[in-house]
Amino acid sequence: MTNEKQETTAITLTVNGETMSGVVEPRMLLSDFIRQDLQLTGTHVGCEHGVCGACTILIDGVSVRSCLTFAVQAEGCRIETVEGLLERDGKLSPLQQAFSDHHALQCGFCTPGLLMTATELLRTRPGASRDDIRDAISGNLCRCTGYQTIIDAIFDMGTRLLAEEKSA
């Protein structure tokens, strides 16, 4: 494989609500496109072979490993990354705050991926039990925390969301 005549393709997609476009080689990974071309470096790359989950983003609401996805596959898709989680006023979202309150991060390298996995889970199953959460995040490696406080944070958030749903 040489790059002498790499074809390039123009792609357009929405990222965190904004329309963005770029010109990419077909082989460019979505993770690289997001980090390098869009300069959204919150999405991390820990293994590039689909194991660690650090690169997890949401595509059309579904969690995906951006290191196993080509940028061209995201054409026309709605992408969410960690940068989109902040509140309108720039403050941490309740989920992000819960991570901090429970000390669910140490080095923080796994954290963006875990936040995206948790976002998906809480949208679909805010009532998830601790065991469900443990299961749901098992594709996101964290080498620092031992996971317990991450589960605490997500469970706490889920409990609050459920309470809000009930009172609404």
């Binding site: 470096t41 919150g42 960690v82 989680l85 902040l86 991060l105 923080g108 936040l115």
Partner: peptide
């Protein structure tokens, strides 16, 4: 935490 949670960490890469 704030920078790491918001995707604004300052990692080498």
């Amino acid at each position: 935490d704030a920078r790491l949670l918001s995707g604004r960490g300052r990692f080498t890469d």
